[in-house]
Design a protein around this nucleic acid. Structure first.
Length: 447
RNA sequence: GGGGUGGUAGCUCAACUGGUUAGAGCUUUGCACUGUCACUGCAAAGGUUGCGGGUUCGAGUCCCGUCCACCCCGCCA
């Protein structure tokens, strides 16, 4: 018999079905046992009596929670049950027995003692069984699906830049060195140069969704050493604002889709209302932002960038002023941005780039790129970046390159903000951080 | 990398100024229960107090070192 998902049972009342999944809870009443079965689509109560199939009854009575079972039974109406129906088990097969007790608590809506995050990550495959986490994974899937859909509908071509590269790319951010046969190589910190190659290759608009690596010892709720970057680059723009507008529309499209598909579930499980922004996201210059912060008495140590406190405050201020959770910040000093950002010809101190903040967190950096080789070389010189390390990159501009710009969005950060999680470690399937490689904790000791 | 807080049972935590046998809730195990649904009731099990050293008659508690986690900062997406 074919398997029926638990979510489909309500249309199968009166029928015999096969359901497969995990033993969620057992309520043994002596001569009647209720067992709640769980699969990816939901939960259902099953019932068996001592007066019914005694063989089945004995197996159910002895089940260990979190074991995997294969059940055939009759779906019947049951007024006593909240859902209105239950399954009377006719056959049961145990596919896999769970050890007990579990090493962590699987989070329930009523959970009081939720295990610590690091312990949960050690047993991530158990942790992800919770409704909260499986919904988080499904929403994450839909986010990438919608972005990809939007890009393809807007003439984008998908590329997969190499993750192992020969020269440490772009800024001073530390890179992971790897052994590549008999030479040194590096893990890509960003697909930036290869996106731009796509523009020089006349692919016109390209996107790249994939892992990037940062060898930074950052212990925060928003940094990972490996994360999934959503990168785009678009040709023939007139201004970085074309890039902003594109990103804004893409985000609206994504959030609209999420709201339609998961809005109710997100509201129930996370208590978060998915808001689809209307109209344009506000733009504000660094200078204006600093003035607003100063009025609110928020201290500033740096005129060219924002501290996390300032990021949160400026988001709050702008949301109150405009009702929008998003805000674009522009007119950053060029010397504080990547060398490939184009300079503002009216004021070369400024870069034609932007950051996008969402609910107090930077989720994107973008810019119009410098496509004129002489200017690009000059910018690299200003940063004292050895020309030799950029030789290959510079060549992309030698045979003509359209004006272009793009952005990178941190997908884990996006999901974190959407569902109001406290850390990107929670919105990553298996987060890598300076002290954690998958389940392998305490990396230093194994050196 | 800098600053702060912490590490005690499978999980979440308590243990006063250093003082008898380190406690509780949940989980687990056993028994009872034919309509439970965060089942209930009774009973039991469960500990090298992160690791290494020191002070003391005596250390979960104080000191030094070390590892790890969490929060804040730096770096960024």
């Amino acid at each position: 018999m074919e398997r029926t998902y638990i979510s489909e049972l309500k249309t199968n009342i009166g029928k015999t079905v096969r359901v497969r999944g995990r033993v969620d809870t057992i309520r043994d009443q002596g001569k009647i046992v209720f067992m709640v079965l769980r699969d990816i689509s939901g939960k259902v109560q099953t019932v068996s009596w001592s007066g019914g199939n005694i063989e089945v009854f004995n197996i159910v009575k002895a089940l260990i929670p979190e074991s995997v079972v294969d059940i055939t039974g009759l779906v019947k109406e049951a007024k006593q049950v909240a859902s209105g129906y239950e399954i009377e088990i006719q056959e049961i097969k145990i596919d896999s027995v769970s050890k007990t007790p579990l090493p962590i608590v699987i989070e329930q809506p009523y959970s009081k003692n939720i295990s610590n995050l690091d312990k949960r990550l050690d047993y991530r495959w158990v942790d992800l069984r919770s409704q909260r986490n499986s919904l988080m994974m499904m929403v994450g899937t839909e986010i990438l699906n919608r972005f990809r859909e939007y890009f393809i509908d807007n003439h984008f071509v998908e590329i997969q830049g190499p993750r192992i590269i020969s020269a440490a790319s772009e800024s001073g951010a530390s890179v992971f060195e790897v052994k590549y046969f008999d030479r040194k190589a590096y893990l890509a910190q960003s697909p930036q140069f290869h996106k731009q190659m796509g523009i020089a290759a006349d692919l016109d608009r390209v996107f790249n969704i994939g892992p990037v690596f940062r060898a930074e010892k950052s212990f925060t709720t928003r940094h990972l050493t490996e994360y999934t970057s959503l990168d785009i680059e678009m040709g023939y723009i007139d201004s970085f604002k074309d890039v902003c507008r594109f990103e804004q529309e893409a985000i609206k499209y994504v959030l609209k889709g999420i709201k339609e598909k998961y809005g109710d579930a997100i509201k129930t499980v996370f208590g978060v209302e998915v808001k689809v922004p209307e109209g344009d996201f506000p733009y504000i210059s660094v200078k204006e932002a600093k003035e607003k912060l100063s009025k609110e008495g928020i201290p500033s140590k740096d005129t060219g960038d924002f501290s996390p406190e300032e990021e949160r405050a400026i988001s709050d201020i702008m949301e109150k002023e405009t009702g929008c959770e998003f805000v674009f910040i522009h007119d950053y000093p060029h010397k504080r941005r990547a060398f490939y950002h184009m300079k503002d010809s009216n004021n070369p101190e400024f870069a034609l780039g932007f950051d996008l903040f969402w609910k107090g967190l930077e989720i994107t950096t973008g810019a119009q790129r410098e496509h004129r080789l002489e200017h690009l070389i000059e910018s690299a010189k200003e940063r004292a970046i050895p020309e030799e390390s950029l030789k290959e990159y510079f060549e992309y501009f030698e045979y003509g390159c359209p004006p272009h710009g793009g952005f990178a969005l941190g997908t884990e950060r996006f999901l974190m903000k959407l569902l109001d999680f406290g850390s990107v470690l929670e919105t990553t399937y298996l987060p890598n951080t300076p002290n954690r490689l998958g389940k392998l904790i305490n990396v230093k000791k194994t050196k």
